[in-house]
Design a protein around this nucleic acid. Structure first.
Lengths: 338, 338
DNA sequence: ATGAAAGCGCTAACAT
DNA sequence: ATGTTAGCGCTTTCAT
């Protein structure tokens, strides 16, 4: 690396003190003559001078960096979430440090410590495996502001969230309105709280309508992935249901593939509804009906809250709710008796 | 933020000098008595002391950070690439700073300057819009090591790459072997060099076999996105070709949707082959035949090279090649005359 | 209108 | 075996 040009170099060449240069470059140079100001600015451009980040932050004690912890960055749900984060971070001139921990608690802790070492200003946590203990132990201990998403709602702290209970209800209502009487559910084998809410909302509508949903036979559990959904197709079919609610779109899309291979037609033989509204839903066959979560907005909203908290550090915990809504596509249709 | 505990606090409580603490904590403390070492280490644990990143790097002049510039992090191709980067970075205890610039040159420049300000140790650039000038002007000027991927091959510098020409040939051979005589091409309306290579390899085989591919009628150009492919379906169909090679999987998947809506059956009416092998290929209908690029490995390989370059700064430019190969799925089949 | 000097928290060369 | 001292590059208080 070439010898970096420092503020002292500029000062010397401009024939002024470092104070002068520093003040002018930080827009605090009103008190200096226009001539001096221009001279310094010109020199900055000439040498493309950029203040040393480490030196600067050592004094300012802020790295203008926010950490973002997601389970899997290759998953478009979180990819979009991160784009939301980035958009707001950029406006506020914060830099996001994004980590994908693959639901591995060890990795999560490692990245967490790395972030703390780098004196991040705050943290957006979109990871279900992050336990309350870890947060208490590592994050609260260091008094780092954080915002949660996709978490177990029992936890404390500021958060962005959607109404999962309502989302589940929306999905159920849609299927009920289509005339389905026997409905199956495909959910995680290791559900987080919000997933449980989602399912409870769903079941609530089912029960209200006196429809069939035997917890043992009609609730299939599998990993929350495309492959999980794919492999669960047989079990879903075995329930004999005419419609199925998958806990997220990834699973639903896997399920679509699995059903297809079993020569089951969607939605003719069975209706499928997912959850999330990832942008792939329009490109699978049939196009997936789903309940939309405003993913980008969630990332943006979380970041906005975080940055506010970093600046003002308001005391009371805040919760921001985002709407969910039905996106009707082609994977659901009216019940037709066989 | 609570008062941060510094090395001086530790030194005072341990009754030693800061040097002692510093040396011991940096594994350079052999010369101190075991008793002292243990006392210091214990204190570090007791207070969960972490050296201040900024102060440390101000001296060491290395932030152990690598910048990663991708066009779109919500795109699974780059998501997987980034995971490859992360896996290697972690081993070497580097932290990746990932930026998604959405092919916006202004954004790219902004992020670039941010990274330089933060004294990143090196850069992985997987962005086609990054021009040679920008690299020269900003990156080389600051003498930051970098590795390119998905770039215009005409540029200099270390790089990871796949043989796009060969990849194009593989795609063409596959279609030719299936008996297709009239083949169309769906490529970018703003192609990068590697895309041109890909297409040239493809055309080379077409020509060798004396098949039809009229540059004007049979080469459709559209944005390199799902929507681009989707909207190009009509044009592709108009060529009358019995098979089509899409420049990447995103486009191919969009095309699949577009063709479906035009009631065209794939592969019965027209065969479709894509390029990349993103993990969604298995979940669209029909499953997409494609040419695989080892995406994760490319990210990992680029990072490995970069870290080597950061450590040893070897002089000569290196190029590392990764293999491509055909992944046969369901979207291509033998030619059947209408 | 400008500058001298102190110091952020840390590392390392150079004593002792 | 341990400590003294001099910075790293920057911002800021307080003089002048």
């Amino acid at each position: 690396m070439k010898k970096k040009i420092t503020i002292r170099d500029l000062a010397k060449e401009a024939g002024v003190s470092v104070t002068t240069v520093s003040q002018i470059l930080n827009n605090k140079g009103d008190r200096f003559s226009t001539a001096t100001q221009e001279r310094v600015l010109a020199l900055r451009d000439k040498y493309k001078y950029v203040p040393d980040f480490n030196a600067r932050n050592l004094i300012l004690k802020s790295a203008k960096t926010i950490g973002v912890l997601v389970p899997n960055i290759a998953n478009p749900f979180f990819g979009t979430f991160v784009e939301g984060v980035q958009s707001i971070a950029r406006e506020a001139e914060f830099i996001p440090l994004v980590f994908s921990a693959n639901r591995d608690p060890k990795l999560e802790k490692y990245y967490l410590s790395q972030m703390i070492e780098r004196s991040i200003s705050g943290l957006v946590i979109a990871s279900a495996t992050m336990t309350t203990e870890t947060i208490k132990e590592v994050i609260s201990f260091n008094e780092i502001p954080y915002i949660l998403f996709d978490q177990n709602h029992t936890q404390e702290g500021d958060r962005v969230q959607t109404n999962d209970y309502l989302g589940g209800q929306i999905a159920a209502k849609h299927l009920v309105e289509l005339g389905h009487k026997h409905i199956a559910v495909l959910t995680s084998d290791n559900p987080t709280e919000n997933l449980n809410h989602r399912m409870n909302g769903f079941k609530n509508i089912i029960k209200e309508n006196n429809l069939s949903l035997a917890p043992i036979n009609d609730v299939i559990r599998a990993p929350l992935t495309k492959d999980g959904g794919y492999k669960a197709a047989k079990d879903v079919l075995a329930t004999g249901a005419s419609a199925v609610f998958a806990a997220n779109d990834e699973m639903a899309i896997g399920l679509l593939r699995g059903l297809h291979e079993l020569d089951v037609k969607v939605p003719e033989d069975i209706s499928v509804i997912g959850y999330d509204n990832i942008y792939w839903d329009d490109y699978v066959y049939p196009r997936l009906t789903t309940v939309q979560q405003p993913i980008f907005d969630l990332g943006a909203g979380a970041t906005k809250m975080l940055i506010e908290q970093i600046s003002h550090s308001s005391a009371e915990a805040r919760v921001q709710n985002f709407p969910v809504k039905l996106i009707k596509r082609d994977s659901t249709s009216s019940y037709r008796p066989k």
